[in-house]
């Protein structure tokens, strides 16, 4: 990156009270305040949000796709973690 470039920020938007912030996209801005203002203009022009988080992209740490197997496969054979695994009499309507 050219030192004269503005850093990259990840933008998260809460679409309405009660819901999680969700990743909306990214943008370049000089600082956090400017990132929030730009995110307002870019991602909420049609009332898509009531709250904005911005995080500098360099601070996001991600799992590696190469490790996806060892990370996520152990959950594959543990169907007993799902409610549908259990046989109950039909008379039990809701449980």
């Amino acid at each position: 990156m050219n030192p004269k470039d503005w850093p990259l920020w990840e933008v998260f938007i809460r679409s309405k009270q009660g819901l999680d912030h969700k990743h909306a996209g990214s943008l370049h801005a000089a600082d956090a305040q400017m990132a929030i203002e730009c995110a307002r203009d870019v991602y909420t022009r049609r009332m898509e949000g009531v709250s904005i988080w911005v995080v500098e992209s360099v601070h996001v740490h991600a799992s590696s796709p190469d490790d996806a197997g060892s990370l996520f496969e152990p959950a594959n054979d543990k169907v007993y973690r799902h409610p549908t695994f259990y046989d109950l009499p039909d008379e039990v309507k809701h449980m």
């Binding site: 470039d5 990259l8 996209g25 990214s26 203009d41 022009r45």
Partner: peptide, 26 residues
């Protein structure tokens, strides 16, 4: 005005998508 502003926004979504491929905005 709203339409032209949208187009600026669309450009930004797309530049951001291109940047995820390892090329910088500059």
């Amino acid at each position: 005005l709203a339409k032209v502003q949208d187009e600026g926004g669309h450009g930004l979504y797309l530049y951001s998508a291109a940047e995820t491929l390892g090329i910088d905005r500059d």
